[in-house]
């Protein structure tokens, strides 16, 4: 059942002896490329964080404003993941299984966050929810605060993370097809039973990857939450905004160690999923 959704690597062809140096050169080149792009900055970050020893890192990370910033980030990320899991599933369902006018438009709109700069997203939300925004009278009537408050930051993060879940699930649902669902239906299963017992299990890796990517992207969001949140210390400050402020305040150990924690968090998510997947098979 998994085979239909899993990628298969072609078997490695044994290289002829004459092509040996070429192969080594290629591998070296690829390593160099990854080294320059990823490993070197990561090493610099680690050495920066540890420049004043482990004690300084622990001190910097245990400051109340730093902890608040990390909680804020995690809270937003969890909310965003939950909402995108629910609505992403609905959206994938109508995009793959249904046909209706405007479907292509909807499909294209899902990708918009890839193309729009996060800062622009922040400003769009300000135009909507700001004091002079389109929805300002409505918000004032119910005394709801969106801009420069948590709801605005959640909306901004929802916007930038929209495509990840949908784009992970669509190919999986497409390749799964409808035969098994039809079989379940002929055996007398209800719509919900079919979804929970047949379709959902088939999509589970799509969900896992979608959740991981959404979560990782939400952790790292900066521009949109800065514009809509205003970066108020201890209130609308996420971990990335803290890093930005710490650099401005010349608190380099704080900035680097917070950056390192964020980076390790994302990295362990990605590696953890990979290990979990191997272990399961």
């Amino acid at each position: 059942m998994m085979n239909s959704t899993k990628m298969r690597w072609p078997a490695v062809q044994p290289a002829p002896a004459a092509g040996m140096w070429r192969r080594q050169l290629l591998i070296g080149l690829v390593f160099g490329y990854v080294g320059v792009l990823i490993i070197a900055p990561l090493a610099a970050l680690i050495s920066g964080a540890f420049s004043e020893g482990l004690g300084a890192i622990i001190y910097a990370l245990s400051q109340p404003d730093v902890l608040a910033a990390f909680w804020q980030t995690l809270f937003i990320a969890v909310i965003v993941v939950v909402l995108h899991t629910v609505f992403g599933t609905m959206m994938v369902w109508v995009l793959v299984r249904d046909h209706f006018p405007g479907q292509r438009l909807l499909n294209a709109l899902v990708d918009m966050p890839f193309a729009v700069s996060a800062v622009v997203v922040g400003y769009m939300l300000l135009l909507l929810f700001g004091r002079n925004g389109v929805l300002a009278p409505l918000l004032a009537m119910f005394d709801i605060k969106v801009a420069f408050a948590l709801p605005g930051m959640i909306l901004a993060t929802l916007f930038v993370t929209l495509p990840f879940m949908v784009r992970e699930l669509i190919p999986v649902l497409k390749s799964f097809g409808i035969q098994q669902e039809q079989a379940a239906a002929t055996l007398g299963a209800s719509g919900w039973q079919t979804f929970w017992l047949v379709t959902f299990p088939a999509l589970r890796w799509g969900f896992v990857y979608g959740i991981i990517l959404t979560f990782a992207r939400a952790l790292g969001e900066f521009g949109a939450v800065l514009v809509i949140g205003g970066g108020i210390q201890g209130r609308t400050e996420t971990a990335t905004l803290y890093i930005f402020r710490a650099l401005d305040e010349r608190m380099y150990v704080g900035a680097y160690s917070a950056a390192l924690v964020l980076g390790l968090l994302s990295l362990s998510l990605v590696l953890g999923t990979e290990l979990f997947r191997r272990w399961r098979e």
């Binding site: 609505f87 609905m90 109508v94 918000l139 709801i144 605060k145 408050a149 948590l150 709801p151 959640i154």
Partner: peptide
Amino acid sequence: NRFIVILLTLIISVVLAGCGQPAE
């Protein structure tokens, strides 16, 4: 179905906006 999706989106965004506020 489409109508339900739109309706739910609206409800959730209002709930979301509402629940952030009193907490603060």
